[in-house]
Nucleic acid binder design. Structure first.
Lengths: 128, 128
DNA sequence: TTTACGCCTTCCATCGGCGGGAAGGTCAAG
DNA sequence: CTTGACCTTCCCGCCGATGGAAGGCGTAAA
């Protein structure tokens, strides 16, 4: 299976698939003409990565998940730990964003938003 | 004022300050020896940018805020619009993260997290 | 005077996670 | 034989810095 078909089968751009090979995430065989040749397992792993990425796992985390996937003797606790760590990261990011939103919202509320130049948002940014 | 002092005064790394000059955000004068020479206004603008960045504004948005800051005839509505747009972006990001969190959380809940290899998280990622 | 040290300069490379596009090889259909 | 779709490698760009090398400048002490 050529890279184009693999791209259609996994819903990943060709560029991304090549990149994943470059960083050693999913390494296809090569046909005699030099074309990448994706077997079912490769496609399966690409889809695995695609899903993990869409869930917010970084490339390195995907690499770990893949190796856990490959490891028949893995402990499900290891996968769960990775997932819980990810949830923790998301929670921290959520807190940060909520705090930012509150600050911006407070600033926006105090601003008339009319044609006059007086603006508490700018004043706040420019405070000494 | 040399870049080191400006860095201390603004709580920005020297590298970042040089970067801001490179992209034309804050352009200091130069002393005879070629050293960057930051006046009070420059330092003030750097702090302005530092605050705007910490509120989640992009570099380009900071550039706009600076030009609004410089414009004595600005309309506060323009600043407010930028801020509201930023709040909208944050809301979209919040929704996305909440959704991700729910998915991961659901997966983690179904996983025993013990020493056995059976793992619904992996199974879900590997589903055909 | 020399040495040491800290600050400054420019330039180049790197990160993540790709995307765009050039230049050229390969393959199947008409 | 040509067309057009596919494939290859290669290099550059994005954002927002950050790290490091190589070398100049400034001051103080030995």
């Amino acid at each position: 299976m050529n890279i184009g078909s693999a791209a259609r089968a996994t819903d990943l751009p060709r560029k991304t698939i090549r990149y994943y090979e470059e960083i050693g995430l999913v390494r296809p065989a090569r046909a005699d003409n030099g074309y990448r040749d994706y077997c079912d397992t490769d496609v399966h792993r690409l889809r695995f990565v695609q899903r993990a990425r869409s869930l917010g796992f970084s490339i390195e985390e995907c690499r770990m998940l893949l190796s856990l996937y490959d490891d028949e003797h893995r402990a499900s606790a290891d996968v769960k730990a990775l997932t819980l760590e990810k949830i923790g990261q998301i929670d921290r990011k959520l807190d940060e964003l909520k705090s930012l939103r509150a600050t911006l919202s407070r600033l926006a509320d105090t601003c008339q938003g009319d044609g006059r130049p007086d603006c508490p948002i700018i004043s706040d940014l420019a405070r000494t």
